[in-house]
């Protein structure tokens, strides 16, 4: 599971007011190199919840993202490389996503988060 996916997923358990961001429990992280597309990252940047990405990357062992950012940084190759790496190259292979309000764990196996709810959570 990429942090791009983490940036979109939220806990949808009945009664939870703010299920985002899900906390990450790490068992295994893998890195897979993919080609960087600067245009793609520039388009995506305004839609990313930045703090959630910074915290998630740190949990996954990557602490290179600045906390304070603005769109002018998208001209910097160094920034784009770090953004790209955190968002698209780090994968949570095994572990869990945890609801920030209830502590309910959603397991991640073979890189696929299982967000299925129990009957009493719908």
């Amino acid at each position: 599971m990429r942090l791009l996916t983490h940036n979109m997923l939220s806990s949808n358990i009945k009664g939870v007011a703010n299920g985002f961001p899900l906390r990450i429990e790490v068992e295994k992280v893998v890195e897979k190199q993919v080609e960087l597309s600067a245009d793609f990252l520039r388009n995506l940047f305004p839609k990313i919840e930045w703090k959630a990405l910074v915290d998630a990357a740190r949990t996954m062992g990557y602490a290179e993202l600045a906390e304070e950012v603005d769109s002018s940084m998208l001209d910097s190759n160094e920034f784009l490389n770090k953004f790209h790496h955190a968002l698209l190259e780090l994968h949570l292979e095994e572990g869990a996503l945890v609801c920030p309000e209830t502590g309910r764990r959603f397991p991640v196996n073979k890189g696929i988060p299982n967000m299925l709810l129990h009957e009493d959570e719908v």
Binding site: N7, L9, L116
Partner: peptide, 13 residues
């Protein structure tokens, strides 16, 4: 990328 979820209960931001 894959996600396991019921579409009608999908939690999304």
């Amino acid at each position: 990328n894959f996600i396991q979820s019921d579409i009608k209960n999908l939690g999304w931001r």
